[in-house]
Amino acid sequence: MQDTLLTIDGLSAGTEDKPILHDIHLELGSGQTHVLMGPNGAGKSTLGHVIMGDPSYQVTSGSITFDGADITDLTSDKRSLAGIFLSYQAPVEVPGVPLYSFLRTICQMRPELKTTARKFRERVGQICEQLELSDSFLMRELNVGFSGGEKKKVEMLQLLLLQPKLAILDETDSGLDVDALSIVSRGIEAYRAQCDGTLLVITHNTRILERLDVDRTHVMVRGHLVAEGDASLVGEIDASGFSRFEDELAAKGGVA
């Protein structure tokens, strides 16, 4: 039996005026790759953000346990330092902060990653090469004026630098052309190979999964986790879509 890294138990959450997630139960084992699929607006990204501790969402019931500790009430900066990483669907631009300063700061905050600036530069250089990202980006302001593909590569750069225990990839494949998708997929593979971290891949597109060995697949519809299965469920969804799950939820009266 694999160690459990993340346990979500009876979690309901939403914004101030709108419940979004309903009684979610989810377990992710260490080193496993899980996929969270569902139609647009199902609440997949919300779940990612709630795991990360986004203050825009309030947890109304249930708990989140990460690496043996209850993190339900921890702020997102502390969750990050504990080893959770959320890759953004639309990474935020931060004018005034060169990418280098940002990367250096977030690494130096983690005792396990603290190193000399020279070694850090070498490491960043290697990852940039791997991601086919020119190191001239390091002197540019964080995400400012970057294309969609470049922003996603910078997210992967952070993932490979920080080596988190759990990486939540929120529609990392959206808006990428074939070449960029291939590079980003290589980044995810490298993360799995180098860090043996746990992955929760949020997507409604199966192309990004082609290069990954999926352990479990979860389906979310209208804020409910309605199905779980092995990797074959991905193929099933690819062939027939989500309507079966939506119908089943409606039949159970689970319309939020």
């Binding site: 990360m52 501790g53 986004d54 203050p55 825009s56 702020t75 997102s76 900066d77 990050s80 330092l81 990483f85 959320l86 953004y88 990474p91 935020v92 931060v94 005034g96 902060v97 060169p98 280098y100 300063s101 940002f102 700061t105 977030i106 905050m109 983690r110 002197m139 952070q158 920080l162």
Partner: peptide
């Protein structure tokens, strides 16, 4: 939005202000 993004990378609000200050010096030295 910026604070949330930085927090998701482990940077608290107080750390964020220090990061912005450091960034000015990094830029000057660059």
């Amino acid at each position: 939005e910026q604070l949330a993004y930085l927090a998701d990378r482990g940077v608290s609000t107080a750390d964020a202000e220090a990061l912005f200050a450091r960034a000015i010096f990094d830029d000057a030295v660059i």
